[in-house]
Amino acid sequence: MEKTKYQELVNELSPNSKIISNTLKAFLIGGLFSIGGQFILNTFKSAGIAQDSAATYTSIVLIFIGVLLTGLGLYQRIGKFAGAGSAVPITGFANAVASPAIEFKKEGHIMGVGARMFILAGPVIVFGTFTSMIVGVFYYFSKGGLL
């Protein structure tokens, strides 16, 4: 059998992920995370905290929740059900940092936790920072006119 024909056979016999049900689950759980975030934000604002500070506090609380659920072994179970619904919110970012930190603890605090903590989240930080630099340069030379 030729390689191209084999690849066709592999595609035919390999089931795909269930896109519709996965999308619905992601929408549902991602939406619940967002509602939770909005609730936390509203609570801070009703306590008299300004919008900017309240948004920062909300992120901190959500990150804490993400790390806590990861440490308790629950985020993995949520992620198995929700997929992108729990990976995309900021709690998912916290999970992507906390899970390798737990995994590589046995290799010590420096070469284990410290060095490996960002193996998953590192690219997001690097390219996020890089993108913001490009946007900043455009913004500077256009005096805000382009944006």
Binding site: S14, P15, N16, S17, N22, T70, G73, Y75, Q76, R77, I78, G79, K80, A82, G83, S86, A87, G92, N95, A96, A98, S99, P100, I102, E103, F104, L120
Partner: peptide, 11 residues
């Protein structure tokens, strides 16, 4: 990936 990462396994 780390065991505690919240992802889905492919079928």
């Amino acid at each position: 990936t780390p065991l505690e990462l919240g992802n889905q396994r492919a079928p």
